[in-house]
């Protein structure tokens, strides 16, 4: 069963007019949000986006923007309490905030 998180929250945006169809976004996305068709990327499954920021960082023409951050409650609480940006200051096995 595919795990899905909250709907309609992701801040992912693709400026199609800038896109050169290189396919990097589709390559790096861990949740297969993008698909490239006829030399243009397309957001196929926005609700699967976890805002890791891989697509935006690897887009050579800055066509993709996303407010990347850690989806980690503990980090958010610490951020709220200390008045700082939530950062993932923690280590784990494979998966982590």
């Amino acid at each position: 069963m595919k795990l899905r998180y909250l709907k309609n929250v992701a801040t992912l945006y693709l400026a199609v007019e800038k896109c050169i169809g290189c396919g990097r976004c589709a390559e790096v996305c861990p949740h297969r949000v993008f698909r490239v068709e006829e030399k243009k990327a397309k957001i196929e499954d926005r609700d699967s986006c976890m805002e890791c920021g891989a697509c935006a960082r690897n887009c050579p023409v800055n066509a993709v923007t996303v407010k990347a951050g850690v989806g980690c409650a503990q980090a958010v609480i610490v951020g709220w309490l200390t008045g700082t940006e939530p950062t993932c200051d923690c280590s784990s096995g494979e998966a982590c905030c």
Binding site: R4, Y5, E51, G71, C72, Q74, S92
Partner: peptide, 24 residues
């Protein structure tokens, strides 16, 4: 359970914020 969002591989920052504003 909410803290496990940090270990999960599919939760977004925006989603966690939305969840927490209600849950906390």
């Amino acid at each position: 359970a909410m803290n496990f969002t940090g270990s999960s591989t599919y939760t977004s920052f925006s989603g966690v914020i939305k969840e927490m504003k209600i849950a906390v």
